[in-house]
C-alpha cells in the first residue's frame, strides 16, 4: 500500500512537470493557433542552463530564475521565427518550430556537449502516511500548483491576460479594438518559454537532461494537451497528472520499458476519439 502511495505521489510530480510543458503548448496554441514543437526545447535549455549556473557556484534560486528567463527568451525567439512573418499558416509555423527545435540541438551541443547533465535539487525526503517521497517531488507539485494559480489569475483578472484571451477568442475583433495580435502571439511564445523553462529546472534534478530529451518532453506535453483539445488548461492539467501517474505506476510495477508506449498510446486513443466526435475539425491544411 505504501509502495502504491509512493508511486502515486511520484507520478503526480512527473505529471506536474508534463503539465507545465503542456500549459505552455496550450497558451501558445490558444493565442496563435500554432502547435509549438519546440516546447520541449525550452525545458532542455532551462535545465542545461541551470546545471551550468549551479556548477559555476551561483546560488539556488538565482540560477533557476536565470535559467527560466533564458527559456523565456528562447520562447520569444521561436515566436519571432514562427509567427513573426505575416501570412505564415499554422502548419508552416509548426514546421518552423520543428526547425527551431533541431537548430537548438546544434546550439546545445556546442554549449553543453551531448552527454546528459543533472543538477542538484532539494535533498532529502519526507514520509507521508508510510510512503517516502523526495522533497524535490513535493517542490515540483507545489511550484506547479502556484504556476497554474498564477496563470488563472493572469488570464482571468489582468487586462493583458484578457487581451491575450481576446486574441484567441476573436483575432479580427482584437485587431478592430487596436490590439497588435502579432505582438500578443510573441508574448504567448515568451510565456510558453517561461512555462517550459519552469518544467526544465524542476525536472533536471529528478532525471538528467540532454539535448535530445526534448522529444520525450514534447510528446508527453502534447499528449496531455490533447486531453484538453489544446485549449483547456484545467483538463490539460488533469490529463498530465493521469499520464504521469500511469507512467510511474507502469515503471513501478515492472513495465518500466513501456512507459513511453503508454503515454503515446493514450495520446493516440484520445486524439482519435476526439476526431471521431468532431468529424470536421475546422482546420484546413493550407
Amino acid at each position: 500500500m505504501s509502495a502504491f502511495l509512493t508511486y502515486l505521489l511520484n507520478g503526480l510530480a512527473v505529471g506536474c512537470a508534463i503539465a507545465l510543458i503542456a500549459s505552455g503548448l496550450v497558451v501558445i496554441h490558444r493565442v496563435t493557433g500554432v502547435v509549438n514543437f519546440a516546447q520541449g526545447t525550452f525545458a532542455v535549455v532551462a535545465g542545461l542552463c541551470a546545471s551550468s549556473l549551479l556548477g559555476l557556484g551561483l546560488p539556488h534560486g538565482a540560477s533557476e530564475l536565470a535559467a527560466v528567463l533564458a527559456a523565456a527568451v528562447a520562447g520569444l525567439l521561436t515566436g519571432l521565427a514562427a509567427v513573426g512573418r505575416p501570412g505564415t499558416t499554422p502548419l508552416s509555423s509548426l514546421i518552423v518550430t520543428l526547425g527551431v527545435g533541431v537548430l537548438a540541438y546544434a546550439v546545445e551541443i556546442v554549449l553543453w556537449g551531448d552527454q546528459p547533465r543533472s543538477a542538484p535539487g532539494l535533498a532529502g525526503s519526507v514520509t507521508v502516511a508510510g510512503a517516502r517521497i523526495q522533497t524535490q517531488h513535493l517542490l515540483v507539485i507545489a511550484v506547479t500548483a502556484v504556476a497554474f494559480a498564477a496563470l488563472a489569475l493572469f488570464f482571468g483578472r489582468t487586462y493583458l491576460g484578457k487581451a491575450l484571451t481576446a486574441c484567441a477568442s476573436n483575432p479580427y475583433a482584437a485587431r478592430v479594438v487596436g490590439i497588435d495580435v502579432r505582438r500578443m502571439g510573441l508574448l504567448a511564445f515568451a510565456l510558453g518559454g517561461l512555462l517550459g523553462g519552469l518544467a526544465g529546472v524542476l525536472v533536471t534534478p529528478m532525471r538528467p537532461i540532454s539535448f535530445d530529451s526534448d522529444v520525450t518532453l514534447i510528446v508527453n506535453g502534447f499528449a496531455a494537451a490533447v486531453f484538453g483539445a489544446l485549449t483547456r488548461p484545467v483538463i490539460t492539467l488533469a490529463g498530465a497528472l493521469l499520464l504521469g501517474v500511469a507512467e510511474t505506476m507502469a515503471a513501478g510495477y515492472g513495465y518500466g520499458s513501456h512507459q513511453l508506449e503508454i503515454a503515446l498510446g493514450l495520446m493516440l486513443v484520445v486524439m482519435i476519439v476526439q476526431a471521431g466526435r468532431r468529424p470536421a475539425i475546422s482546420q484546413e491544411p493550407t
Binding site: 490533447v226 495520446m267 491544411p285
Partner: peptide, 10 residues
C-alpha cells in the same frame, strides 16, 4: 481521421 498537427504528432 486526424489532420494537421494532430496527424503530425500521431
Amino acid at each position: 481521421r486526424l489532420r494537421g498537427h494532430h496527424l503530425a504528432f500521431a
